[in-house]
């Protein structure tokens, strides 16, 4: 009985209303260019997004699954893009905004500061930037779901 009460208390502690709001971002999303699908998930108290699908999964130069060949870290250049975490360390700030994270662009190997704003339940505005928000660009991502 005591264990159940402790579990309930623990759950109540970790499942705050803010967490429920923050968890709205969890799911599968498609960036504006449509060349990938990204699964956003919550790990501990932060949000991460990994590539789970590629429009062109095979590298035409090698005829093998695409790897992160533009990564500035040479040791990462053979890592498959599928499964690669391109969104990292996002914290929910309230009002449908996630911040303090980074986004990685496999096309050029650059990592940017990033903020995410949920326009509606199925649309995200993702702004990657360098240093200050001015030097950045906003992309719109759409929520995906499994075909019924």
């Amino acid at each position: 009985m005591f264990a159940l009460m402790a579990l309930f208390a623990f759950s109540a502690f970790i499942l705050k209303p803010a967490d429920a709001e923050g968890d709205k971002i969890v799911g599968v999303w498609e960036p504006g260019h449509g060349k990938a699908k990204v699964k956003i998930e919550k790990i501990a108290d932060k949000y991460y997004g990994k590539i789970v699908w590629l429009l062109e999964p095979i590298d035409p130069d090698t005829n093998k699954p695409k790897v992160d060949k533009n990564n500035p870290d040479e040791s990462m250049r053979n890592v498959p893009l599928k499964g690669y975490r391109i969104l990292k360390d996002f914290v929910y700030k309230g009002n449908g905004e996630w911040a303090e994270g980074t986004i990685y662009d496999p096309e050029n190997g650059n990592t940017y500061s990033c903020e995410i704003k949920m326009k509606d339940d199925n649309t995200l505005d993702i702004r990657g930037y360098i240093g200050v928000r001015t030097f950045g660009r906003t992309d719109t991502w759409k929520r995906l779901q499994m075909k019924s």
């Binding site: 498609e30 699908k37 699908w53 599928k82 499964g83 759409k142 929520r143 779901q145 499994m146 075909k147």
Partner: peptide, 12 residues
Amino acid sequence: DYDIYDSFESVD
């Protein structure tokens, strides 16, 4: 299993 994401489509 990444193959399941072949069948994901836009909610809109």
